[in-house]
Amino acid sequence: MIPAQFDYVAPATVEEALALLAEHGDEAKVMAGGQSLLPVLRMRLNAPGVVVDISRIEELRSITDDGDAIRIGAGATYQDVLDSDLVREHLTLLHQAVAEVADPQIRHRGTVCGALAHADPAGDVGAPALALDAQMVIRGSEGERTVPGSEFFVDLFETAVGEGELLTAVVIPKHTGWGSHYEKFVRVSHQWAIVGVAVTVRVEGGTIAEAKVGLTNMGSTPLRAPAVEAALVGQPASEEAIGAICAQVGEGTDPPSDLNGQADYRRHVAGVLTRRAVLAAAGA
């Protein structure tokens, strides 16, 4: 319950933060809201030499309209996202998924970018970020680069953010007018998803014109389901039409087996949830 000793620094700018990361290298851990990091430190499953708190960097706090996309800074909390009209209007799927993250107290502190950088495949924001074609903005001493979600999530708890780099924002293309739904399957509320399915669709005349599907906790990273997405296009938004397609969503995935479910069960549930999420997203 008491972390091991560490030093604490709270830089005021991204440059300062990067300098600190460069200085401390391996010994440094970046903390934004701290909602994932602090439990690990309390358990002493990690004992970094220095914690770099980026939550006091003013420029990272904002959620802004970038024209075709919404930019969510690394300091923006889940609650900031929930309170944002921009997100509610243009990124409905993200809004719905963030409402499912843990509980209100955690959402008041935790950040969307922190969760993305944490890259827990059971977290609720990875799948919608992938499904919404999010671009991750990574800053390092060499400057800034932008990485698409598909390249961002590398493996379990592993992202494209390199040592000495910082995820400063996520930029997500607007999906204004798209129907969406996040279906989270848990045993008890406020826990990690056993399986989650993030779906956003564009329906034209009762037919699915475009579909994007992200999966939570179905592998070592959040996943996208391109085959299902492609098969959904052109289908009427009815159970008969899409049921068999959605049931295939788990094919080729390698979900974990743990206390809450064996892999085959997760694949099955993912199929059911996908159907439900697509129908809900399509307003059927």
């Binding site: 045993r187 008890v188 509320s189 406020h190 826990q191 990690w192 206390l259």
Partner: peptide, 9 residues
């Protein structure tokens, strides 16, 4: 996390 007590919800 794994000893799952029920919540209000």
């Amino acid at each position: 996390v794994d000893y799952t007590l029920p919540t209000t919800a």
